[in-house]
Design a binder for these strands. Structure first.
Lengths: 201, 201
DNA sequence: CTTTTATGAATGAAGG
DNA sequence: CCTTCATTCATAAAAG
């Protein structure tokens, strides 16, 4: 699924302009640690949950993941809840995996299978699955074919707000100004999580 | 501290004896999603745990100070800061002018033209232009049809159904969300998630 | 600094 | 399939 080793060939084309995210080993290590912490926490919580629930069964327990109804101030109506299907992270993950598996064309029968599997992780219908694959393919394709060699420069504008300038992305469509990148936003706060983790020890 | 955007200049120098990890935006997004999955699971488990402990006021199993991390507060976990394009006043002006010009349907070719013109005034991509028109149209439309400034209580549902039929799906498509999330929904397989993350090992 | 608003982007679903 | 629309989400910008 994820091939970190694979370099992007497309970068080399436009005069060797190389617009990719680069990580140092140090950053990589940080990331790894962060994920590891998450994994550990999940593991621990699962164990804890098992231990607790095994003692007594909790029938009416529910999670607070419900969609909140406030706001909607623009028109002041719409009491109804969300009407469109939203895949749970787990469903998404499974779908993504199937998609990456290469079986590009989910047949009718395949759809049924997938649907019934995903039903275990939340409500879903065959139409949902069908649409998802449809959209997924269309959009991944479009992303691939729409590199749009952006014009690197011409940032000289009357309202160029910052001397700081960062080149945009490689093949991705998005291009944005990053006038003031703050480290806090992207930093993985391993320290905090790690300290929290100690509660388990 | 950590600036993911910053390119490492060191890579090609020094005789190329430099080993850095390179990620595409796509990979970056994937990573973000994967971490997000962990965050969601942690969150749900914490909630579950809270529900359990508050319900029975546990005797000794008090792990109340178990808290993951401020990053995973809301439904959308901003593990990785996602930046977005911001049009310069000049770009905005041009866009606005084109929009008002009545050319309601910016075709693909048109988009290209506009994009290349706006590129002279700052970084922008075709997708940006496309999105801008999409949003612009949708929002001007909504504003026009749903101001209801005079009486927000009068037409709660009527206005929505008359002008444009919402979407009465004749089929029995379950457009369902997750109205009643149960604890069982989180009965995930750690194995799955782990497998997704093996790329880091 | 915190809260609110405006708006760029993502995505489920419909149409052709 | 591909395009378009509608709704939702997240965040930059503005307000407090």
């Amino acid at each position: 699924m994820m091939e970190w080793e694979k370099q992007e060939q497309q970068q080399q084309e436009n005069g060797g302009a190389l617009y990719v995210k680069v990580m140092t080993d140090e950053q990589m290590e940080l990331l790894r640690r962060q994920i590891s912490v998450y994994a550990t926490i999940c593991e621990q919580l699962v164990e804890m949950h098992k231990a607790i629930t095994s003692q007594q069964d909790l029938a009416g327990m529910r999670l607070g993941n419900l969609y909140c109804d406030p706001l909607m101030s623009s028109s002041g109506h719409k009491i109804t809840a969300r009407q469109r299907w939203t895949p749970t992270p787990l469903q998404l993950q499974i779908l993504e995996r199937i998609f990456d598996q290469g079986t590009g064309t989910p047949s009718k029968q395949k759809i049924k299978e997938i649907t019934s599997e995903l039903t275990q992780h939340g409500q879903i219908s065959e139409t949902n699955v069908y649409n998802w694959f449809q959209n997924r393919r269309a959009r991944s394709k479009r992303k691939q074919l729409g590199p749009t060699a952006n014009n690197p420069e011409s940032e000289v504008e009357t309202e160029d707000e910052s001397p700081k300038e960062k080149k945009a992305k490689p093949e991705d469509i998005h291009s944005h100004e990053n006038p003031n990148p703050r480290a806090e936003d992207t930093s993985f706060q391993s320290a905090e999580i790690s300290s929290e983790l100690h509660a388990f020890d």
